[in-house]
Amino acid sequence: MGRSHALTGWCAGLLVAPLIGLGTVAEVVPFAAATAGYALVPDLDHPHARASRLVGPITRIVSEAVRAFSGVLYRLTKGPRDEDSTGKHRHATHTLVAAILLGMLAAGAGDRGKWAVLAVAVTGLLLAADVLGDWLIVSVLGATAWTATGTALPGTTTADAVQAGLTGIGGWIGVAVALGMFAHCLGDSLTRAGCPWLWPLPIRGETWYEIRLPRPLRFRTNGRFERLIVVPLLLGAAALLLPGALQAVERLFTATSIWLAGQ
């Protein structure tokens, strides 16, 4: 579900961006790209996920550490009716608690300097581009250059503009991380296996209760429904949610209607 998760994160970023004061394409695109990237992070608990293979042995080691921690946490906190499971995949990283904690950690990157902020943002971008394609990097770099140029005041240097841009990123990077991870959890809740993102809230004797749709509405991970229905819908939403896209479609529709009426 890598592509679905990244697209879901992208769409979530586009929807939430205006709520945190981001309105232009130059502001929204980097935010949505980071959200798309961090929507892949929960699957670090799977050895074959794209996030686990991103940087070869380094991310594989991180994945193993995440899986080990998740297994221990599951054994320590499982309820009387929780299933007999290793607790490694779709557990510790697939919770609202994990999303909030990692989001807070990312938000604190600003206290450690501009390079820490940049590292968090670039990590999200690389994760997203690995799944969605290099066009994303080009788009973000273009948006970043546009922002730096637009915020540069007379008498300021390029370094000042870059510093201002990093300060802006520091204001939203924590939200992007938490939102992306939570979007992943919601996506997994649409599948047959579900997702225990309400941990540690006990439900029916389970602290790892899988939240999911009614049985007829669930779909299989990487199945035909996801490939042929879910992904195309997300691609359409990813384009239409860009700032000004709906207005452009509306103007095109109006112009086309007028032209057809005149024929």
Rank of each mutant, 00 (worst) to 15 (best):
L44G: 06
R112T: 14
D160T: 13
Y74T: 03
D45M: 05
L217K: 09
W10A: 14
H94L: 13
T93Y: 13
A51N: 02
L40W: 04
A176L: 04
Y38W: 15
Q247R: 11
G37E: 01
D160M: 06
V249M: 09
V72T: 11
L228V: 08
A26N: 08
C195H: 04
V131Y: 00
V177H: 01
W259C: 11
L127C: 05
G150L: 06
A39R: 02
R50Q: 14
W197L: 14
Y38I: 12
G244I: 08
R67L: 02
G2T: 02
A159R: 11
T8L: 14
G108T: 10
I137S: 01
D43V: 05
L201V: 14
V249I: 11
A255H: 08
C11D: 07
L7M: 11
I58A: 15
P42S: 11
A161F: 10
G180S: 05
L125R: 00
G168C: 01
R220A: 15
A128P: 00
Q263M: 13
V138M: 12
I169E: 00
L76I: 06
M1H: 12
G108M: 13
G187V: 06
R215M: 13
L186V: 15
G9I: 03
R53H: 11
G187D: 04
A6L: 04
G223L: 01
R50T: 15
L153N: 07
L73N: 06
G133D: 11
P42G: 10
A237P: 04
R251H: 07
L141S: 12
P200N: 07
R75L: 03
A109Y: 03
A106V: 08
L153F: 03
W197C: 12
E27Q: 15
V120C: 05
A32D: 00
L102W: 08
T254Q: 09
D43N: 06
R212W: 08
L136A: 07
G236E: 04
L234A: 03
Q247A: 14
G23F: 02
